[in-house]
Design a protein around this nucleic acid. Structure first.
Lengths: 159, 159
DNA sequence: ACGATTTGATTGCATTAGCAACTAATATGT
DNA sequence: ACATATTAGTTGCTAATGCAATCAAATCGT
């Protein structure tokens, strides 16, 4: 199995990982310093903003932001308490609930994006050529597609 | 500020982030399924294995694995309880402590690497050409260097 | 040399995370 | 149609995280 992963690839993986953590951590600090909520909140707000009618079912959100069910409940609690979204009953499935973006949530996402995008640029993408961006895009797109295929495959086998 | 980050770059960032989370999460699951500890433990063991005499000061480790001081204390507690490392007094600085890798820790890292490397390959690097690996390596290396420079700069200003 | 500051590690406390158990509602299989 | 299984969401419990406070030891300034 160590044959599959040559020196260059494992080195690259290490850099990948470190870059992710470093950049993300720095952005989190910038957000906090600006008195804004963490990146996770941004992910939720952004997912809702893209969704039709600015609302999503909780389990869809959980999948979108890679969180467990129980955790999404509590996260939505906090966002609701901050009036960035509100819960709505689902008429078609009376078990279910929607999380719906509020105007405050919309405004908050924009405020966060100012800091967030600045961080992405400053700590990462400013130093990339157009060609490099292209390569990274292609690579991640491919990796994601296959990784997700494998993931669903294995979960299907389990159940 | 949105000028600095064009469509291609922000899309690429989103893919970068999602790829990292997806691949990492899948590897964590594989480790757990194999009855092995999480990736964080691996990072510690691997850092120690590379270090001279297989031992490092706690604060060095904290920096290496991006954890707060208090957290590294508790993490080392757990690893010590699992006999994968042991604390050693530092003769030069009597405040300080070393974490020193044990034989069990060495063996554990190797066992984990079998699963870990398999995951890296399967979910990510198998689908990359040599050229792509080269580009990613260069890009991350550059990003890391500048991000770390900026980070230390800002913390220096603060203090 | 000695008081003031900084640094290394640990502990207390509050927040956040995941797993498992639970409730309610829907889907399925005969 | 009715018992069974699945799915959606919430809640209880435990583990893990970060910040602030603490304690001990080293360093700095004079």
């Amino acid at each position: 199995m160590s044959d599959r992963l040559d020196e260059a690839r494992s080195r690259m993986w290490r850099l990948f990982r470190t870059t992710y953590v470093t950049v993300t951590e720095q952005i989190e600090k910038d957000l906090e310093q600006a008195g804004l909520p963490p990146l996770l909140w941004y992910s939720v707000l952004w997912a809702l903003e893209r969704a039709p009618d600015h609302e999503m079912r909780l389990h869809e959100l959980a999948e979108e932001v890679f969180l467990s069910r129980s955790n999404i409940t509590r996260l939505i609690d906090r966002l609701e308490a901050a009036v960035l979204l509100c819960r709505k009953r689902c008429p078609l499935d009376r078990r279910g609930a929607y999380a719906a973006l509020t105007n405050e949530g919309l405004a908050m996402r924009q405020k966060m994006w100012a800091v967030y995008s600045e961080g992405i640029a400053q700590y990462f993408t400013d130093h990339l050529s157009q060609d490099e961006v292209q390569v990274l895009d292609a690579v991640f797109d491919r990796a994601l597609t296959t990784a997700q295929k494998l993931t669903h495959q294995s979960t299907a086998q389990e159940g």
